[in-house]
Design a protein around this nucleic acid. Structure first.
Lengths: 212, 212
DNA sequence: TAGATTGTTAATCGATTAACAATC
DNA sequence: TAGATTGTTAATCGATTAACAATC
């Protein structure tokens, strides 16, 4: 079954299946069908089945997929089983919230330390050290960090991004509302609040218009 | 030019154009071409031009679009010009971060108040009141709130969601990592950190594999 | 005019959905 | 066996890209 090429669209749906499977562990059967999963998440059953076929080595006709097996397969596929270390730059409110969010462990993400351009009086946040950005390079090299999280204001984001790349970071999770310029081979994933807001805002506008 | 039907794909790209246009206001020409915008954001120029055609009433061949006009058009299209009031439930770290994020004003979002199941000693956060959830209904009705933001743990999210709908809320921004069940006509936009992490994680796995 | 840019029409590509055969 | 479910192959749909005509 090893690794067919997977599309981004499928990849983005996998965490949803995983969350549902883990949250409804209790009680029920050892098995779950693609049909049941689809109904629960309000999706098409063919799509779910096709997605699962990408990561699982198959379900059993009439009964479905072994529940725990499916969880394991998705987690392994997404790399949640081997922890990824990350650093975060920007120890403001959002940075602190991310440092304190315990849910990341379940995704195999471990934030080792926070950095800030001007570290405040506190030297730790949520049990993690806050260090000046000047120490980031040596820190990343010695801990072999490959992932960086940017939670600074938009104006500083590109500079922080450049520094991260110098540190050997290959994947950047960007919370700053700005486009980042990066060389080939570096992935930027924008956690774009503005995008979500646009979708919500448009829905409300349509609602209001309908009322008239 | 009024309102052709717009696809979600286009809608999600608009905030990116807007952010770029606003951040690079200074100095340059009064005009900007789709070509220039595409190059700056690393996108295809035809796609940019087509997207802009959806919201703008046209650029001028040879010179491009009037920069400020384009900003106004996108903002109006996205509804950033008329403010949307919202309430937030879950006054933890993430909820506080969102309450304190001043950038939302630029998107026409105004968080009026935060609610919590068990409000702590503090009664305000970032200048906004923290109220018990029991008061949410009367608050939403009297302020005619249509948007709700959920920042509670996954286990409580569905219950909060149901309450919001009872309050007359039509659009929900969900930060809890769980699927929400809602009736027809209610929009849920998941701010799914797990999705982003999946994309990043996959990139790192590919990187590591390449090295071998 | 020549050339850059816009906007539109057609072609391609990818993802979703539908139809169907295989299996327990 | 009959029926539910899987997995695959074909058809549809939507979005992106390419080609081209229009404009200043």
């Amino acid at each position: 079954m090893e690794h067919k090429e997977i599309s981004k669209a499928v990849l983005k749906r996998l965490p949803g299946y995983l969350a549902y499977l883990k949250n409804t562990q209790e009680g029920g059967s050892l098995y779950i069908s693609a049909t049941a999963l689809a109904n629960a998440l309000g999706m098409g059953e063919v799509q779910v089945r096709k997605d699962l076929a990408m990561v699982s080595n198959g379900g059993r006709p009439k009964v479905g997929y072994l529940r725990q097996g499916l969880i394991d397969d998705i987690e392994q596929f997404l790399g949640y089983d081997n922890t990824t270390d990350a650093v975060l730059v920007g120890a403001g409110k959002l940075g602190q919230a991310l440092c304190g969010y315990s849910g990341f462990e379940a995704y195999g993400l471990n934030i080792l330390a926070a950095f800030d351009l001007m570290p405040a009086a506190e030297t730790t946040v949520e049990g993690k050290p806050i260090l000046p950005v000047s120490k980031m390079q040596s820190f990343c090299k010695s801990h072999k960090v490959l992932m960086g999280i940017i939670t600074v204001p938009a104006g500083q984001a590109q500079r922080v991004c450049d520094q991260m790349i110098e540190c050997g970071i290959k994947a950047i999770w960007n919370f700053a509302p700005t486009h980042l310029e990066v060389p080939e081979g570096i992935l930027v994933q924008n956690e774009n609040m503005a995008t979500s807001l646009a979708v919500l805002s448009m829905h409300l506008q349509a609602q209001i218009k309908d009322k008239k």
